[in-house]
């Protein structure tokens, strides 16, 4: 019965209902479970059990802080922020750095092609070996914005809200990520 009700409710409506009945919060969790699991996997390279623990703890934290949910932000941005912070804290605790596990994404490839002079076919062909290893070498803050922009399809406002950085900074980080990628690519492909 609640499942049927959930489908017709948007995130903010479900948040309001969840404050009185945790079953509605279950609907929100089901809605975001897969997305958040994939997001943690993309930025952490952790084992499935660890990823599950992080997402579970994030849901618990989100439930406890529902009254602090900022209604001016998208609920998804607020939830992603919690998950992001939980992931970073987990990796700091286990002394790990952000590692990316990214699939070959068309929009990402197009972004790389623009201004880097690397051919599209080259990127596609070498994505899993060459490109992935170069991406791992980028600074952590560059990796974060790349994943959110191209693999989570977040716009600049959402990225700003998730990472708690000004939009100008987000744009600068993306731009610098591309420059650093180009430098690393040229270095790796010098013969």
């Amino acid at each position: 019965m609640i499942d049927q009700n959930c489908q017709n409710q948007d995130d903010n409506q479900l948040v309001a209902l969840s404050l009185n009945d945790s079953q509605y919060f279950y609907c929100l969790m089901k809605r975001y479970e897969d997305k958040l699991t994939n997001y943690v996997r993309r930025i952490s390279y952790l084992a499935d059990d660890d990823i599950a623990d992080i997402v579970q703890e994030s849901f618990i934290k989100a439930y406890e802080h529902l009254n602090d949910c900022d209604c001016d932000l998208k609920f998804s941005s607020w939830l992603y922020r919690i998950v992001h912070n939980q992931t970073i804290n987990f990796m700091k605790k286990h002394k790990q750095s952000i590692k990316m596990d990214l699939e070959n994404d068309e929009e990402f490839v197009d972004w790389l092609v623009a201004d880097t002079n690397i051919e599209k076919e080259t990127i596609r062909q070498h994505f899993n070996e060459n490109i992935q290893s170069i991406l791992q070498k980028l600074r952590p803050d560059y990796k974060e914005v790349l994943v959110l922009r191209f693999f989570e399809d977040k716009d600049y406002t959402e990225i700003s809200d998730i990472l708690r950085k000004p939009m100008g900074t987000v744009a600068t980080l993306l731009s610098r990520a591309k420059i650093q990628f180009k430098i690393l690519y040229e270095k790796e492909n010098k013969y």
Partner: peptide, 13 residues
């Protein structure tokens, strides 16, 4: 498949 949402709800309750 590990059902994270089910476990989280169980813990909440």
């Amino acid at each position: 498949k590990t059902n994270i949402s089910d476990k989280a709800l169980e813990l909440i309750n």
